[in-house]
């Protein structure tokens, strides 16, 4: 680390208007993601972490965004919150890609995996079916699939949860992003499958110089994988921790409480001091 940041978020706020009331779900949040870094955003449900992630490419549904999201790509620095719709569409996928918690919500059940991957590819790049297929198969192979062709021709319901999530990563990777935003990607998966996904993300990061913004409520998982952790609470970032020799050392009491809740260094059958 110590490299330039690929993404610099400054004073990002996300507000929703319901029944004429303004509700700020993300309040003036600032953070940085260095090149090839694995940054975790940790928080409970309702802390605003998912809304923060969506706001990065203006995917928030009907929300009002303020602040700046500076993307340092090949052609200089751009504020994603201010670029034109065309530029935004170009950035989505090629700069920043997403993987969400539930692959079923993102996969069309009546199309094969291959059809969906090709469609995604062709939506971004002007090319022929052959090249789209080739790249898709390569992407599936990168996602640790031993039989990319078989997966290519399968329907979503024929695959297990872990496999579907790997397909989502392959699809996110297809368009060659520099930053992968993963929102609780392993929360619904078994722990042995989760290990596979984490290893996959690690490999991709090393080989393809991919940065990762990993959102989770599990601070223990974050402390195993991240280079940097931001802790969110009620819409604000309350702590930033960088990985040191001793791992992550929390200063805020809320963060310390989260670590205790993660059952690290807590004696069995004793009360966990969280309140």
């Amino acid at each position: 680390m110590g490299e330039e940041s690929i993404l610099k978020v400054q004073n990002l706020s996300v507000s929703f208007f319901t029944n004429k009331e303004k509700k700020e779900v993300v309040r003036e949040v600032s953070f940085e993601i260095p090149h090839r870094a694995w940054v975790c955003l940790v928080g409970e449900s309702g802390s605003g972490k998912t809304q923060t992630a969506l706001a990065l490419t203006r995917l928030s549904n009907g929300a009002e965004l303020s602040g700046s999201v500076l993307w340092r790509g090949d052609d200089g620095e751009k504020d994603i919150l201010k670029v034109s719709p065309d530029e935004l569409r170009a950035l989505r996928g090629t700069a920043i890609s997403y993987v969400f918690q539930d692959p079923n919500g993102s996969l069309n059940p009546v199309m094969t995996i291959g059809e969906q991957m090709v469609e995604t590819y062709l939506a971004h790049f002007k090319s022929g079916f052959a090249e789209a297929q080739k790249t898709s198969l390569a992407s599936l192979a990168e996602a640790h699939f031993s039989e990319p062709r078989r997966v290519f021709g399968s329907f979503p319901h024929e695959l297990s949860g872990g496999m579907k999530q790997r397909v989502m990563i392959a699809m996110a990777f297809l368009t060659g992003p520099k930053l992968l935003v993963a929102d609780e990607p392993t929360t619904a998966l078994d722990v042995t499958i989760e290990r596979g996904i984490i290893e996959l993300l690690r490999d991709m990061r090393t080989e393809w110089e991919l940065a990762c913004l990993f959102i989770t409520h599990n601070i223990r998982l974050a402390s195993h994988v991240a280079d940097r952790i931001y802790v969110m609470r009620q819409g604000r970032i309350i702590e930033r921790m960088d990985r040191g020799a001793a791992g992550f050392v929390p200063k805020e009491s809320y963060t310390k409480t989260l670590f205790k809740a993660g059952l690290e260094n807590v004696a069995p059958q004793t009360r966990i001091e969280v309140e």
Partner: peptide, 15 residues
Amino acid sequence: LDLLAQAKMLNLFLK
């Protein structure tokens, strides 16, 4: 449940 809610539930079970 989130980690904090989980911790509270575990405390409840222990109690």
